[in-house]
Design a protein around this nucleic acid. Structure first.
Lengths: 202, 202
DNA sequence: CGCACCTTGACACCAAGTGTCATGCGCGAC
DNA sequence: GTCGCGCATGACACTTGGTGTCAAGGTGCG
């Protein structure tokens, strides 16, 4: 899930431990809820010490939420790779579709995880914090594309925020749906609403 | 700041203690940063026990952020009070203006507070969480106004999210500005961008 | 006066993190 | 081969946020 191939030998062991930890954690958390599990239990299940846990994850929340950092860089990369002439609305739709399609593709695992995050206040807070970081990245990239000064123009920040608002809405709606709507379809619906202003620059 | 007049006698003592606590806390936090101050120091400064602190505030963050709850209800009230025929963009602008004008009016106190919140990860996370609650309230109110089903239509959630995105952008920009731009002016700028899609329902 | 209620403080306790140090293991240099 | 270096780990003590519990004090009321 978080694997990035082609790294040094010693760092692959790190990945292994990290995966072991996240797997153990996710299983327990899905079962008994975020507050119902202590990190001591998690590390016992994974067979490492508590100190090691905190060498891999900055907090108990991070073990659930850390993968979002990768998604943020993925989104930025996608936005950066979109053709220069493309209108912001479609470029941002494509950007937001990156995490959303992977959600849709692995819904068996992703849906419970999303539900856990959105329904646990502590996790939701961290999730929103990450999203704020995404917003920074997207807005600077957007400013670069359009030749705007992100410190002077409100547009980049606003546009990035709107795209993430759409993302949020889709995710929330998806997490509430019983059988699982198609997130990509929902995203298109959402962008049909917000797209108008996205492309009305100036 | 948090005072709500016309309450019972005994509950006014509560307000007093709460104010004492927040004042002591804000002073220390502004001075040494959020992580540089322990709640033991805060309660020592306020002259109460640690246990009492947590009887008034659910967490250390809450002593900084609790007043946001009131702002949320204020915004909902404002939105509910807007005339029925008013287009969503102006109704939401008016809604967002409620906290923003008070910020502008008390910038000497509000600006450092906003900066503290936006620059402290833990506080920022809580802030965003509160905002998510605002979003719930605003979207249901919006759905009521427009006769939409908030569980079926994406629009209410999206519109509320866009309004809060504008709010966020304004607040962020305001907190970065040296001499303090006018938040209400910034809000109008922001709504000039997002307004287009806000009023294009269906 | 006595009673009930509410607030507070003291204290013990749990869970999340962090600093520190010693151990162990792989790996290259000699 | 082995010496030694670096790195990951574990053990442990400690700080801090946060909660449960209980006993004491104040206040209003019959």
């Amino acid at each position: 899930m978080t694997s990035r191939p082609g790294l040094s030998l010693a760092q692959r062991k790190r990945q292994l431990v990290a995966d072991e930890l996240t797997e153990a954690a996710l299983q327990l958390l899905a079962l008994r809820g975020f507050d119902g599990v202590t990190v001591d239990e998690i590390v016992a299940a994974a067979g490492v010490s508590k100190r090691t846990f905190f060498r891999y994850f900055a907090s108990k929340e991070d073990v659930v939420v850390q993968f979002l950092a990768d998604m943020g860089t993925d989104m930025c990369a996608e936005l950066a790779s979109r053709p220069a002439g493309e209108p912001p609305s479609t470029a941002l739709l494509r950007t937001v579709l990156v995490p959303l399609t992977t959600c849709g593709a692995h819904s068996e695992k992703a849906l419970p995880l999303v539900r856990l995050i959105l329904r646990t206040p502590a996790l939701h807070a961290r999730f929103l914090e990450r999203q704020a970081q995404w917003r920074e990245g997207l807005s600077t990239e957007l400013a670069r594309r359009l030749g705007l000064d992100p410190a002077a123009d409100l547009y980049p920040h606003l546009a990035a925020g709107m795209a993430l608002t759409a993302f949020d809405t889709v995710l929330w709606r998806w997490s509430e749906s019983e059988a699982g709507d198609d997130p990509t379809e929902l995203a298109e619906q959402a962008f049909a609403v917000i797209g108008t202003s996205l492309d009305t620059v100036g």
